[in-house]
Design a protein around this nucleic acid. Structure first.
Lengths: 211, 211
DNA sequence: ACCTGAACACCGTTCAAGT
DNA sequence: ACCTGAACACCGTTCAAGT
């Protein structure tokens, strides 16, 4: 569709957000700058302001893009517990695919309407599963919290369990293997399975008779 | 000990970190500045650099203060599951007491040696409880992830489940009560109980014979 | 209508100069 | 040794001026 030779295209909000996502992805964490964004778009920094109100707005649009990748269709075809686990995996995956956005996203308040739309679907499914109304928001909130915390942990340049000293923390030292992504994924799985398992047990205790 | 009249005291790293904690607490989120810190200490901004290498270092020391409040003594007197829940509560509480520090802490990598010291204690307790070695780090990591995610959620100026439109999201709308701290605390409790419950069930399946 | 350069008020940080 | 003012390279943002 676009000619192979680079042609100066119209600058639009769309293209700004796209370039922002690319820039955040390329550059090291926390160095997302309007000056760099402008250079990438081949315009001057002030020009950005003729298409977009400010930097916060751009960040919010980037967040929307990431959140839009979260898939909650599992609730249409699976029981609530399996669907919740699938949703959690999709949620984590969306952020892990854009790890550089996470610091930005935790600093700025969340307001993505895409997510609220999903809450409605999930709430309905949980209600139909027999969860008492006053616990429904709590149930998907705790799953979401675990996902966000895991994502933070996943992208953190942690090294936290690698003390330099030879003698200290013998137990810990003997347990820590390679801190690769595979281990992180295994940890996430252990967590989400346990949490859903606990929730399943709770529902048995607190369930209102299913409709 | 100190005279009641304000006497210009020696500027030390200690006092800088203390002032930083106070400043972060007073000022709105994300406006922690060396200029403001200097003014509060009644010195010029460059003077800070004769006591401390840079801003990151100050932030790291502030984090250490917060982390130092986390109490893992429960492992000395309670079974692993109850102790893990107590630790999680103490962990969350330390950060909730300084909510303004959370954005700073998630942006910067974690390197608090205070926490690693606790990992060693926890790992030992989990080992004695019969957890297989290759799952021990995962177990306290998932709890930690849930805590961090919850804390983010707790301090976020969320409003996320309050759509303006009158007709949209009927189920969700009917479930959302007042978004007060009490509800957040209840949510955290539901989460930590469920997670620990799931972990307890898992241990039954995977336990090596206890020593 | 869209874009620009110059300018503003701020950052964190360096450094020569003062005591 | 400790502290300072001036300066540097950067921010995000505004605005009058150009096309």
């Amino acid at each position: 569709m676009t000619p192979s030779r680079a042609v100066r295209q119209h600058v639009t909000e769309e293209r700004i957000v796209e370039a922002a996502l690319a820039l955040i992805h390329d550059e090291p964490m926390g160095s997302f700058t309007l000056a760099k964004l402008a250079k990438r778009l081949r315009i001057s920094a002030p020009t950005i302001y003729s298409h977009v109100p400010n930097k916060q707005y751009i960040i919010e649009r980037v967040r929307s893009r990431v959140v839009a990748e979260i898939d909650c269709s599992a609730f249409e075809r699976l029981p609530w517990d399996e669907a919740l686990a699938e949703w959690a995996r999709s949620y984590a995956n969306a952020f892990v695919k854009h790890p550089e956005t996470i610091p930005l996203l935790t600093t700025n308040p969340v307001q993505a309407p895409e997510l609220v739309r999903q809450y409605e679907i999930i709430a309905t499914a949980l209600q139909e599963a027999g969860w008492p109304p006053h616990e429904i928001v709590a149930v998907f909130t705790v799953v979401e919290s675990f996902v966000m915390g895991s994502v933070l942990d996943l992208v953190a340049p942690v090294q936290m369990v690698q003390p330099a000293d030879g003698e200290e923390y013998p137990v810990l030292r003997s347990l820590v293997g390679e801190a690769d992504t595979l281990r992180a994924q295994h940890t996430f799985e252990l967590g989400i399975e346990s949490m859903i398992d606990g929730l399943r047990a709770r529902l048995v205790r607190v369930a209102v008779r299913p409709i």
